[in-house]
Amino acid sequence: MRYLIWALRLLVFVAVLMFALKNTDPVTVRFYADHLVAEVPLIVVMLATFVVGGIFGLLLTVPAGLRRRRELAKVRRELERLREAEASRAGRESTTAQPSPDEVAPLSPI
C-alpha cells in the first residue's frame, strides 16, 4: 500500500512539473487601481493563487475547529463530574448500607 501511495505521489509530481514547464510564458498581472506586475511567469501566478487559496481555506476551517475543541472540553468536564459523582455515591452506599444476612449467606435446604 505504501508503494502505491508513493507511486501516485510521483505521478502527480511529474504531471505538475510538466504543467509548470509548459506554462512559463510571461504574463502581466493587473490589480485594482491600475497597479500591475509585468512579465511574471504564468506558473508563478498560478502557484501564488493556489497558496493564497489554501491559506484562505485553512482560515475558514479555524472557527469550526475551535468550536469542536471547546465542545470536546465541555463534554470531558461533564464526564469527569459524572464519574466523580458516581464514585462518591458508590462510596457512600458501601459504607452506610450493610447487607442483609440473606445476601451474605443465603438460606439453603440442609
Rank of each mutant, 00 (worst) to 15 (best):
Ser108Glu: 14
Leu8Cys: 03
Ala15Ile: 05
Gly57Ala: 09
Pro106Lys: 06
Leu58Ala: 11
Arg76Leu: 02
Arg69Ile: 06
Val27Pro: 01
Glu84Pro: 00
Ala20Ser: 07
Trp6Cys: 07
Lys22Leu: 15
Pro106Thr: 02
Phe13Met: 12
Leu72Ala: 05
Ser108His: 12
Ile43Tyr: 14
Val37His: 06
Ala97His: 10
Leu72Asp: 01
Arg89Pro: 02
Leu72Gly: 02
Arg70Leu: 04
Tyr3His: 10
Pro101His: 06
Asp102Thr: 13
Pro26Ile: 11
Lys74Val: 03
Ala20Leu: 06
Val75Ile: 13
Glu39Lys: 05
Arg76Trp: 01
Val52Ser: 05
Leu72Arg: 01
Leu60Ile: 10
Phe31Trp: 09
Leu21Ile: 12
Gln98Phe: 15
Phe13Lys: 05
Arg77Met: 03
Gly54Trp: 09
Glu93Leu: 15
Thr96Trp: 14
Trp6Val: 07
Thr24Asp: 03
Val52His: 05
Leu4Lys: 04
Leu21Tyr: 08
Arg92Ile: 07
Arg30Val: 08
Ala87Thr: 14
Ala33Cys: 06
Phe13Thr: 08
Tyr32Val: 15
Val52Met: 07
Val62Cys: 03
Leu42His: 09
Arg68Leu: 06
Arg92Gln: 10
Gly57Phe: 14
Thr96Leu: 15
Leu60His: 12
Arg76Gln: 03
Val16Arg: 07
Val27Ile: 11
Tyr32Phe: 08
Ser88Cys: 00
Arg69Ala: 12
Asn23Asp: 15
Leu47Phe: 08
Ala33Leu: 12
Arg92Tyr: 14
Glu71Ile: 03
Glu86Leu: 09
Ala48Pro: 00
Ser88Gln: 15
Ala97Asn: 13
Glu80Lys: 12
Pro63Thr: 07
Asp34Pro: 00
Leu10Phe: 14
Gly54Pro: 00
Asp102Leu: 12
Ile43Ser: 11
Leu17Trp: 07
Val16Gly: 02
Lys22Ala: 15
Leu79Met: 11
Thr95Leu: 08
Arg70Tyr: 07
Asp34His: 06
Val14Ala: 04
Ala33Ile: 04
Pro63Cys: 06
Phe50Lys: 00
Arg68Ala: 11
Pro63Ser: 07
Arg9Met: 11
Arg81Pro: 02
Arg89Tyr: 08
Leu66Tyr: 12
Val14His: 05
Leu4Val: 07
Ala97Ile: 14
Val52Arg: 04
Leu42Ala: 15
Val51Gly: 03
Ala15Cys: 06
Tyr3Cys: 10
Leu47Ser: 08
Leu59Pro: 00
Arg2Pro: 06
Val12Thr: 05
Thr61Ala: 09
Leu11Asp: 01
Ser108Gly: 11
Met1Pro: 12
Ala87Ser: 13
Lys22Trp: 13
Leu79Thr: 09
Ser88Ala: 14
Ser88Val: 13
Gly53Trp: 04
Trp6Ser: 10
Val29Lys: 05
Glu80Met: 05
Asn23Cys: 06
Leu66Ala: 06
Thr24Glu: 10
Thr24Ile: 13
Ala48Ile: 08
Leu8Arg: 02
Pro99Trp: 11
Gly91Leu: 10
Gly53His: 05
Gly57Leu: 03
Asp102Pro: 00
Arg9Pro: 01
Glu78His: 02
